[in-house]
Design a protein around this nucleic acid. Structure first.
Lengths: 235, 235
DNA sequence: GCAAAAGTGTTAACTATACACCCATGC
DNA sequence: GCATGGGTGTATAGTTAACACTTTTGC
């Protein structure tokens, strides 16, 4: 039994913004689009929501198909639905953003997948409103990361304090006082110090740390602090 | 010229969660649904996105039609898109939340509109996943309001300090120390003191304030503070 | 032995919190 | 004149921010 007989049907798409960190700079994964229209132009990874799947499942499926990536930190970001956002046909798109450590996923740069990493502030022209999608996702990443420690998703299993600093510096394009920042990190109880040093980047070597997954999950799950902090002055 | 010929078409709906504040408690606006299926059951205000409008425009149109409300503070909240979320047919729904001062909009309770206010913690059973939508919107309201002063949308043009406190107490279900809270409010530069008192609620009377719209807009527009505050411990 | 990056220590300024009292008014 | 809610003041603890120096090691 069907109702809504006179209501319009719409094409519903998902597009994925995949942020990566290579130890130095924040990057974004793009592909050469494999279907018309705009075939062979750079774009976000996207596809259509199918009848038997939720939008979230569609995003997961598409990511897997186009990059082989699975089990990512992924989050719904925004909706893009102006009637004329794609030139040819009306498509409403839901965007998702995902976070990965680029070094762990070199295989997505293989011939099988036509994906390529670009610096977040220097990527080719994209189809439709995909640039706007990136800008919006980046803003969300920043505000989420200011409250939840999600940026750890961008780091390898073992990481050093200097790596975390440069990650935050890359995401917010700021200079961080490492002395204060390290102290903050250590007092967060999120890190477990390992008895091992990364000697690649300095002579002295920096100790490796790993995430305390229990504390991490708690923090990610816990809601925002509920007391208003909006009275804080902007400088 | 059309592409995507083999892609599935989907019904795309919007549902609106309207929060109101009457000076005492946080409320939510529901209607008796006017169309099948589930006609005459309590539900959020909803409808379908039409070919020539964006989802946001659809939400605006539907709100106007069902309640007469216009020019509200409104924000995209989430997506509900499980294949079986409506029993009869596949519908993906985008939720929006809106904030209003209930006293200013008594007319929506007229016979013309079948809308009714309910306390946020005590409303009738709703169709489909609408309760989940409310829970999710309430969470978003709380987290947004912890960073941006959006709750002022729930207050009348002129309001008193005690009114703001009780609004925050209602939204977060906490007790607030009025002495500290007032100081925080006043130092925020968001308020302009008027030479007029509300004598309805006390003998002494409480001074009216009004929003400094310039400062308010700046705050609403400004992004989150960019430095990570996630190292803050939960108690 | 020196350059280069890692990491620790100290202080001052600011914010948040806890708590107690006076004020204005209607009855 | 007293009960009621409105509003101000202060002291303390905790957090952030600014700044300088020591450590380790490869060459």
């Amino acid at each position: 039994m069907k109702f809504y007989k006179n209501e319009p049907l719409i094409l519903l798409a998902v597009d994925c913004i995949i942020f990566g960190f290579n130890g130095e700079s924040l990057q974004i994964l793009l592909i050469k689009r494999g279907f018309e229209p705009e075939i062979n132009h750079w774009s976000l990874m996207g596809g259509f929501v199918q009848p038997e799947e939720s939008p979230e499942e569609a995003a997961t499926r598409i990511l897997k198909k186009l990059t082989g990536l699975e089990n990512l930190y992924m989050e719904q970001s925004s909706i893009f639905g102006k009637p004329d956002r794609e030139k040819y046909q009306r498509v409403v798109s839901i965007t998702y953003f995902a976070l990965i450590d680029t070094n762990q996923y070199q295989h997505i740069l293989s011939d099988e997948y036509k994906a390529k990493w670009f610096p977040i502030d220097n990527y080719p022209e994209l189809i439709f409103d995909h640039e706007e999608m990136i800008v919006s996702a980046k803003r969300l990443l920043r505000s989420k990361a200011a409250v939840y420690p999600i940026l750890f998703e961008l780091l390898p299993e073992k990481f050093t304090l200097p790596q975390i600093s440069s990650l935050y510096e890359a995401v917010y394009t700021i200079d961080i006082d490492k002395r204060n920042f390290n102290r903050k990190l250590l007092s967060s109880k999120l890190l477990i110090k390992l008895n091992e040093k990364d000697k690649e980047n300095s002579k002295k070597g920096a100790f490796y740390y790993t995430l305390n997954r229990d504390v991490y999950k708690e923090r990610i799950m816990s809601f925002l602090r509920y007391l208003p902090s909006w009275s804080i002055q902007e400088q």
